[in-house]
């Protein structure tokens, strides 16, 4: 059987039993086959030992990944995102970079999840300079206050406290709610979140 046909038959999650049943092969023959496909890059495994071993089989080769924005957001936020594209960063990628990238997506869920990153910000100088480069310091400040109100966060150094901001900014395109009006007025930012939304990222 050609590789593609074989992979199409097997694609998805398999155990050794389900794979041998699908191919009508003995357990040992299936193990040999999966081992070959793993070497070729079509199979990755999880589990083993006391856990049942699971084989993830795809028709396309499974490339090694470097973490990107969605990986880091999902690592720190209890609200998980289903990535709508595969984002990978090859190089140093810190929570400061992720926060800026999340704001740039203009996605409600990505920005909501990014609130959890404020507990992992260590380089405020870097965050401030990145935010200034991307013209989003007001949004960062408002999100920080929002996070501070609801969860444990790393303290923002005093020198970055809000000044007077001329133009009004919106986290999402010209959309805001009044649940956090005080924070919105402090940073002159339209905040789209309601109190109920914050519960999703609390636990």
């Amino acid at each position: 059987m050609e590789n593609i046909e074989l992979l199409k038959k097997l694609q998805g999650l398999q155990t050794i039993e389900t794979a041998s049943e699908a191919l009508n092969l003995s357990r040992q023959a299936t193990l040999n086959l999966l081992s070959r496909l793993k070497k070729e890059g079509y199979v990755t495994t999880t589990g083993g030992g006391t856990q049942k071993r699971l084989y993830k089989i795809t028709v396309r080769k499974q490339r090694k990944r470097d973490p990107g924005m969605f990986d880091i957001l999902n690592k720190y936020s209890p609200m998980k995102l289903n990535p709508w594209y595969d984002h990978q960063v090859h190089g140093i990628y810190t929570p400061e970079d992720v926060l800026i990238d999340a704001i740039k997506t203009k996605s409600f869920r990505a920005i909501l999840a990014s609130l959890r990153l404020f507990n992992h910000i260590t380089d405020w100088k870097k965050l401030y300079s990145l935010a200034k480069q991307n013209d989003c310091w007001q949004e960062i400040g408002a999100l920080y206050d929002l996070a501070k109100k609801n969860f444990k966060v790393k303290r923002m150094p005093k020198q970055y406290a809000p000044a007077r901001f001329k133009g009004k900014k919106y986290i999402l395109r010209k959309y805001e709610n009044n649940d956090f009006k005080d924070i919105g007025e402090k940073w002159n930012v339209g905040i789209p979140f309601r109190k109920g939304d914050l519960i999703k990222v609390e636990t």
Binding site: G68, Y85, D86, H87, Q88, V89, H90, G91, I92, Y93
Partner: peptide, 18 residues
């Protein structure tokens, strides 16, 4: 509708949309 974005970050960033 990109399938992927790969960022190669050094002093400057090479951003490749797939």
């Amino acid at each position: 509708d990109l399938f992927a974005i790969h960022e190669f970050k050094e002093k400057s960033t090479l951003k490749i949309g797939v």
